[in-house]
């Protein structure tokens, strides 16, 4: 049973205030949001920072709901993914990890690299271009989630892909929200 203590210590060491692992649905998204909000309210987080964290969380969680791929093995369940929030003295770190098909990795990397290459004005222009000319995808996404996360964060998005098997890669994404007012 030592893994419980280990997990507990990892969570403390990483300042994780919330970790959710499992299936992601809109109902679960709402619960996770409510928990994080209560948590931030409990220590009187500033409204403007709370809103940014909430914003990034919504985009991140709804991305997972729409795009996380189910593992083939039954034991992994349906679109199993992980979502975490870390609270540090100067920043919140919102992290997610989920499986994506291998053939999507190139496109995802290119999109994230492009977003990271843009400054504030560039992100605003890209946002306006996509909202004006883009169509909602079959899954109901506007193609704006990463851009919005980058804009609300004001910092670069960090991401990584780890191979799972021949068909899937594990996509990790990390967004930082500063707690010191800009």
């Amino acid at each position: 049973m030592k893994y419980i203590y280990d997990l507990h210590r990892i969570m403390l060491r990483q300042n994780l205030i919330l970790v959710y692992e499992g299936e992601f649905t809109q109902e679960i998204t709402k619960s996770v949001l409510a928990m994080a909000e209560r948590n931030m309210d409990a220590f009187g987080e500033e409204a403007s920072i709370k809103r940014k964290v909430f914003n990034v969380m919504v985009e991140c969680l709804q991305n997972i709901c729409k795009h996380a791929e189910s593992y083939d093995t039954e034991s992994y369940g349906k679109n199993s993914a992980i979502f975490m929030i870390g609270k540090h003295n100067n920043e919140y770190i919102i992290t997610s990890g989920n499986a994506v098909p291998k053939d999507r990795v190139k496109d995802l990397s290119a999109r994230l690299a492009h977003i990271n290459s843009l400054d504030k004005e560039g992100l605003k222009e890209l946002y306006k271009e996509i909202i004006k000319n883009g169509e909602l995808s079959a899954k109901g996404g506007a193609g704006l989630g990463f851009i919005d996360m980058a804009r609300k964060s004001g910092q670069k998005l960090r991401y990584d892909f780890e191979p799972i098997n021949d068909a899937l890669s594990f996509f990790s994404l990390r967004t930082t929200i500063s707690r010191t007012n800009s």
């Binding site: 809103r51 909430f54 914003n55 919504v58 985009e59 709804q62 909202i131 004006k132 883009g134 909602l136 109901g140 996404g141 506007a142 704006l144 989630g145 851009i147 919005d148």
Partner: peptide
């Protein structure tokens, strides 16, 4: 108070 990016498309 808040809207997600999918809603922003519909607001437009």
């Amino acid at each position: 108070e808040y809207f997600n990016t999918a809603s922003s498309k519909l607001i437009l």
